[in-house]
């Protein structure tokens, strides 16, 4: 499998987003027993962010456009 630098950057960015959302102190903002749209706020935000991150992974793994043959041969990161 070919790995490209862009994938690493994307995945590390996504990781940072995940860490930010799933760790305090940001969690304090939404970890409240109130119901929003009939659903607990924390439940909504956590599952929502989870879904967004999964979508982010999906975006990151799509095979990029085939590079010109010259670069393909040189390859590498």
């Amino acid at each position: 499998m070919k790995r490209t630098g862009r994938k690493n950057e994307w995945s590390l960015t996504l990781f940072a987003v995940g860490v930010m959302v799933f760790f305090p102190p940001l969690m304090n903002l939404f970890d409240k027993p109130t119901l929003v749209l009939g659903v607990p706020l924390a439940y909504l935000v956590l599952f929502g962010a989870w879904g967004v991150i999964i979508a982010g992974i999906w975006l990151g793994v799509r095979p990029s456009a085939p590079p010109p043959s010259k670069t393909a041969r040189d390859g590498g990161e």
């Binding site: 995940g18 956590l46 991150i53």
Partner: peptide, 20 residues
């Protein structure tokens, strides 16, 4: 309450950095 979630959020974060 929602204390059960970290066991699944952690693996998700690891799969985020799958290329690494």
């Amino acid at each position: 309450g929602l204390d059960f979630l970290p066991i699944y959020l952690g693996p998700t974060l690891v799969f985020v950095v799958w290329p690494v």
